[in-house]
Write a protein that binds this DNA or RNA. Sequence first.
DNA 1: TTTCGTCGGATTGTCGGACAATGGATTTGA
DNA 2: TCAAATCCATTGTCCGACAATCCGACGAAA
Lengths: 259, 259
Amino acid sequence: MESRTARPPSGAPSRFRRVAATPAYRQVAEAIEREIIAGRIRPGEPIGTEAQLVSQFGVNRSTVREGIRLLEHSGLVRRDSSRRLWVGLPHYGRLALRMSRALVLHEVTFRELYEASLPMQLATVEAAVERATPETIAQLEENIARTERALGDPSEVAKLDAEFHGLVGKASRNRVLQLAREPSELLVMPTTEMILKRVKEGAPRLLHAHRMYVDAIRRRDKQAGRLWARRHLEDWRKGFERAGKDLDQPIDRIYLEST
Amino acid sequence: MESRTARPPSGAPSRFRRVAATPAYRQVAEAIEREIIAGRIRPGEPIGTEAQLVSQFGVNRSTVREGIRLLEHSGLVRRDSSRRLWVGLPHYGRLALRMSRALVLHEVTFRELYEASLPMQLATVEAAVERATPETIAQLEENIARTERALGDPSEVAKLDAEFHGLVGKASRNRVLQLAREPSELLVMPTTEMILKRVKEGAPRLLHAHRMYVDAIRRRDKQAGRLWARRHLEDWRKGFERAGKDLDQPIDRIYLEST
DNA sequence: TTTCGTCGGATTGTCGGACAATGGATTTGA
DNA sequence: TCAAATCCATTGTCCGACAATCCGACGAAA
């Protein structure tokens, strides 16, 4: 793609940057984005109507619309029921989904995923132990109760496992950690179902680990929390290998179907 | 925004999901996205011309264009010099930038940032110790040499620090970890400059920590790597507090200017 | 043979205008 | 006072058009 700049006839140094004439629709998007990033328009406030933007930017409505679409995708701009434009807060889930997709497209391996998940999981549990409220603990216990009843149904258990880890993430009350952890979680989770289907002692072990998690959180015992987080994830890895899969294999696209 | 579904005349249960008439431009975007995610079009391959898409989808060109803009923003679709459409690999840097922006818009605190950075930093160093190649080690040493020469210039040192951690990330050869760590790094980095300007023993301490990092990597000594990663980040925190800032304060928008 | 103009076709960026569908506001009717 | 009918603003989609640009080809010149 750089063929043009990368072909100086002889040893001539490539002296010039490629010229870039930013199209109007992108200028529109960038202008609006700047206003939001700088905080001059705050989340929840209305951006004008398309007609207003047309007159402000002095371009055609089609151009404005293309610019807006650019921002709409990232969540910086939302539309309400009447389709009017508002400044939005990019939602974690959306971003995490995109990141996990990017990871798959880059063909990262399960080993990378496992290696990265472990420390983030440990940190999350530690924070959760420190800051969990009685409310979230109750939610965790309720989740465990439901898991008990669903022990025979792998896909249901996998779903509850995902919910469980989501709750632990919430309990950590660290949004940076949550956002960092969630893309990996989105990729680990679907494989859990596969593992549970093939390794029949998986579900009880998972349930037991969850119980110990919550127990550690209730007793504010960081060491126990870390221990069980580690065991839980190691179980995942072992189950993965026991199911006949190779850790150094790229993550399968299949695990993205759930759009 | 849920006003329509939330108004059952009496106590009648809300039995029906709200019908969602997905606009055509979004259907176009989703259709293309699905093809890419599923791997039926691979990165580097051309998506058709706008005219082709028009005839395939049976909608107007304006609609196709709006749909494409949605994807363009996420990097799934790129344009080359001739503005033709290609399937692209979403670039880490782009995604990380968006994530860090989202974090700022959500007004996360420096404490959250610090707490999340520490474990990820430790894991990164550990992986780097394990897998660094002579090449990247050489690059790290070269970075240190440049840092030595720039000791008097806080903003230059901050820039080199960012580069250093980028190199360590590369050395870790774990892309999941890298992607998880980078948004935080993008927010930690700009504050380093501020700290270095106000705490004059900051720069030498930073340099020393970097030296010990590389030393640990060269000797494949995980313990030392972890130790110095921890000290380095703790230095950052202490410097932050010594500069008179409060860890529980939301991250300032200012640190996003560098688009 | 290689390099340089030039030309034509293809494609994108932008524009202007148009209309149906929809939501919100307003007025009307009971 | 409240519900129904009406109006108006706005969006989603379409159509057609044109300039700017890129690509490839074809010759002309060195």
